[in-house]
Design a protein around this nucleic acid. Structure first.
Lengths: 349, 349
DNA sequence: GTGAAAGCGCTAACAG
DNA sequence: CTGTTAGCGCTTTCAC
């Protein structure tokens, strides 16, 4: 078992002092002769020496580590977020340490604590709660912290998040242009401040703005049973009296269940009913999930890639300019029109 | 911006030497009076002091870090694996550092290098290649390394992997008992040594063992087009001359496409055709994907949770007993029978 | 151009 | 019971 090499071993082999080797490692070639440089290079190459980052970090008071606390590692959104944040950090010299809170506030706190112990230079948090005093304390103490698609009360954080309101408005406009005169929103049970409730709210507001009376009657809550969704659909069809309605689903799962309910009722898209929805996890598009559905589904696709990139931007900005103003960046969703809402040519773009 | 506290600050505040504080941190309470202990405790609590793990690790020559190099962070399998490995490590004192290779061998090497620099005490690798000399070198040099669901040539690693052969055999037996007389395998393009090729091979072997003539004619390659799969189905039906065949798909995507092809051809499950397949990503079961299919799908479900747990077991065993014999652990898949293969009562279990 | 020496925050002999 | 001291692997003044 070969003991790990240190800078001293390299220095000895190269016949120089460890100072010089350190300079070599940090690219300060001005401080040494061509030959010395070559000699060190050789020794490092043949030995496979790897500087000890622990020691470097300790000395430099910089770990070059960014902590990423995710609420739920199993959510497809999280996978995509980890990848996009990771990609955005490539080549920056920073490394990412990911910690999973498994939707537990307690574990989130432990994770944060542990990452602080690891001396991370910054923290990206997809927090499980809307009230996290510890996080506020850390940010106040000068630790660069950015929130990913979450909001917390009582403090002004750097935040990158998915825009919901405009996305819903876009969808509504598209459906209206396509010729649908009755729009409905199907939303799973929602907590306050969650994306779902924001989407529902945006729907109601836009409808009101368009002069629809009693918009609430078009905002259905879609529980976890297909039968329930079928009942909602029937109710909706009733209201429409023969005119085709269009449904906006507020997340992937609801979209999937609604597809099934539509088929169970023997309805045809887009002419008997229109359907679109948030494809938060990229299922419909990337995992080819839509292919088993009879028609292509119109979706609102949030760009997780963009979200990750902006999150990292915010963090680095905070690291470099600790005193700069806090910023919130909204990432717009992209409306991808497919056959499920192509009632008329006009709506097909 | 409050400067980070160190052990010296705590020592001063408590009026003791840093040795005593260090002892306190490491739970060596025998070495101090009740009062001293209480005093230190207070100071640490009110100050929110967190020991610097970098310094601890440097001193102890142990980072308490385990590196996990994953081939593709975006695969649902990977998410599940990260979670299960993470869960298995909870409370062990070790922390997990995950690095994504994004299916690139080059990035895998960089990741390994970086993790070594971070002085990880062990490595879990879901390698992108079947030939990784660097990994062999490290294991040879005494670094604890365990492979997760991968095999590499020319070296004997600790490995935890999904069992494929027996799973396929189980499925075949189930289908046979259910009354299907013609079994087929649909497999996406495969590389050598990959799970897919193992599954295909297991299928062929079992058929041969059962006395089927020309088993190759039942092993179809399922390319990425539904039309291609439809053609395969037609060919299969031809061979069967009126008797219902059953298809085993070697992964989630193929299963999904085959469902679509079956519907396009207007075939009914289970009586006109039987269908089952590997549900590697837990789609059919956990993400409720199967719910938009007309009948429940019989699946082979590998337990990722078990895989993670065994991987961590292997790693800790290697860390604690560096000289112990290398071990390979096979995690069996679980056959979950649903309606898509319930041709007869007998096959329904 | 090069190196000696101090020190990052912590632990562990060793000495009382 | 408590403290002094050396040193983990590295960077960085400062001196030659």
């Amino acid at each position: 078992m070969s003991k790990n090499l240190t800078i001293v071993d390299i220095a000895k082999s190269a016949g120089v002092s460890k100072t010089t080797v350190s300079r070599y490692l940090n690219g300060q070639y001005e401080y040494m002769s061509e030959q010395t440089r070559e000699r060190i290079k050789k020794v490092i190459e043949v030995s496979g020496y790897q500087p000890n980052k622990l020691a470097q970090s300790l000395k430099n008071q910089k770990s070059m580590l960014v902590g990423f606390v995710v609420a739920d590692i199993e959510s497809p959104f999280t996978s995509a977020a980890i990848k996009s944040v990771g990609d955005a950090m490539l080549g920056t010299g920073y490394n990412l340490v990911t910690a999973n809170s498994d939707n537990s506030y307690e574990r989130e706190l432990e994770n944060i604590q542990s990452l602080i112990g690891q001396q991370v230079d910054g923290l990206i948090v997809n927090t499980v709660t809307s009230s996290n005093p510890r996080l506020i304390g850390l940010a106040n103490g000068g630790l660069p912290v950015v929130l990913l698609d979450r909001f917390v009360k009582d403090y002004n954080f750097d935040i990158a998040y998915f825009e919901n309101t405009k996305s819903i408005h876009d969808a509504i406009e598209h459906l209206h242009e396509a010729g649908y005169r009755h729009l409905a929103s199907f939303t799973q049970e929602y907590e306050f401040v969650s994306p779902r409730s924001l989407r529902r709210k945006a729907f109601l507001e836009k409808l009101a703005e368009m002069g629809v009376e009693h918009p609430e009657q078009y905002a259905f809550s879609a529980e976890n049973k297909t039968e329930k969704i079928e009942a909602n659909l029937r109710r909706l069809l009733d209201i429409c009296k023969g005119e085709p309605p269009a449904v906006i689903c507020s997340n992937s799962v609801t979209l999937m269940r609604t597809v099934k309910a539509i088929r169970n009722l023997g309805l045809r898209m887009p002419h008997e009913i229109g359907l679109c929805g948030f494809d938060e996890w990229g299922w419909a598009s990337e995992l080819d999930w839509a292919s088993i559905v009879d028609v292509g589904l119109t979706t609102i696709l949030p760009s997780v890639h963009e979200l990750g990139a902006q999150t990292v931007n915010l963090l680095f900005r905070r690291i470099q300019q600790p005193e700069s103003e806090k910023k919130e960046i909204a990432i717009p969703g992209k409306l991808i029109v497919r056959d499920s809402t192509r009632l008329s040519k006009k709506g097909a773009l």
